[in-house]
Amino acid sequence: MTQTGGFSPGVAARVRLVDGRRVFVKAAGPEPNPDTPGLHRAEARITAALPAAAPVPALLTALDLDGWVVLVLEDVDGKMPAQPWQHDELQRVLAAATELSVLLDPSPVEVPTVADRFGEEFQGWRQLAAAFAEGVDDLAWLPSWAQRNVRRLADREAAWSIAAAGGALIHGDLRADNVLLTDDRVAFVDWPWAAIGASWIDIVLMGPSVIMQDTPDAMRLLDRHLCARAADPDDVTSVLIALTGYFLRQSVQPPPPGLPTVRGFQRAQGEAALDWVRERTRWR
């Protein structure tokens, strides 16, 4: 049965084997997006190295042949969280993310730090400020608040990598479509973007996708959770500003091959993240 959700092109299907067992199969070749097989290879390596106690579908086998990569994973008979998020499901996922961060700190897997993983991407505000200063982009496509504060945002963005430092393994791409809920379990799937950093970062990275779904009281719930995790408020804001700049700048770039809808999704997340930044900074 083909599964929906996510953006990577390729096969994603629940399969019944001849012996009656179910597995989840995902596969991708070099077309239409040449980067997807590399992501599958990374996911295979990371998933195989996670501890058995992690709430992550186990990798059963992986094949790499003629540019095609196939992963066969444990099947999870669950569902993605409802959209917009329901309060109880969001609370379940936030609690499970806390437990996961404890289990994966220190990181059991050798992967890049968040600064190395996202360092080139998380320069959006600095790039936008430079383009404005050089007359290349008038930034008229940005909300007026962002236009007024672009230099301030760029300055604060520069601190994000120090704010994000830590020793925990983070998922790096946590959203509703990378979560499965069963009656008694929360499973986290799709791990190619995993990195090492502060244990609370996944909640900041997930936040804009929660807010953009018009989830009731989303910002307050996210802020309360981060406070309970003892995340430094200034560090959270610095990382959030960097994430926001990434989403907004990427949203006006040409779409990657085979991913025609990703820019619209980035724009929606960027606007949601910007609302969260305004709420946290209280800048005029």
Rank of each mutant, 00 (worst) to 15 (best):
A12I: 02
L169G: 05
L100K: 00
R263S: 08
R175V: 09
V69G: 05
A42M: 09
P9N: 01
I196G: 04
R148D: 15
T261E: 14
L17G: 07
V189E: 04
E99H: 14
P51L: 10
D75V: 00
L142F: 03
V72T: 13
T47Y: 02
A129Q: 14
S144F: 09
A230Y: 10
A97R: 15
D183L: 09
D234H: 13
A146G: 12
I201S: 06
D75C: 08
L221E: 06
V93I: 14
R185P: 02
L274I: 11
A242F: 05
A13S: 14
P9L: 01
M1K: 11
D217N: 15
A242E: 06
A54L: 04
G258S: 03
Q83R: 14
Q250P: 00
W145T: 07
P51W: 10
A140Q: 12
T2S: 11
F132Y: 11
G29A: 03
A168T: 15
V109F: 01
W193V: 01
D202S: 13
A49Y: 02
W141C: 06
H40S: 02
L243R: 14
F24E: 00
A273R: 08
F122A: 07
R220H: 12
Q86E: 14
D137C: 03
Q147L: 10
L243A: 12
D183W: 04
I203L: 11
I211L: 11
H171R: 08
A273H: 09
L128C: 12
L59V: 06
E43L: 01
T47E: 02
G270Q: 11
D173N: 12
A164H: 03
S8M: 10
T98F: 09
A42S: 15
I211F: 03
V252M: 09
P57I: 07
A164L: 10
H87C: 04
R282P: 00
Q91Y: 01
L181G: 11
L65R: 15
R22M: 04
L153Y: 02
W85E: 07
G258R: 05
R229C: 13
R249S: 12
W283D: 02
W85A: 14
D116Y: 01
V239F: 04
P216V: 05
V76S: 00
R92S: 10
P260S: 06
T113R: 10
G167H: 14
A12G: 05
V23I: 15
V15L: 10
M219N: 11
G207Y: 09
P81H: 03
A129S: 15
I203S: 01
A158W: 11
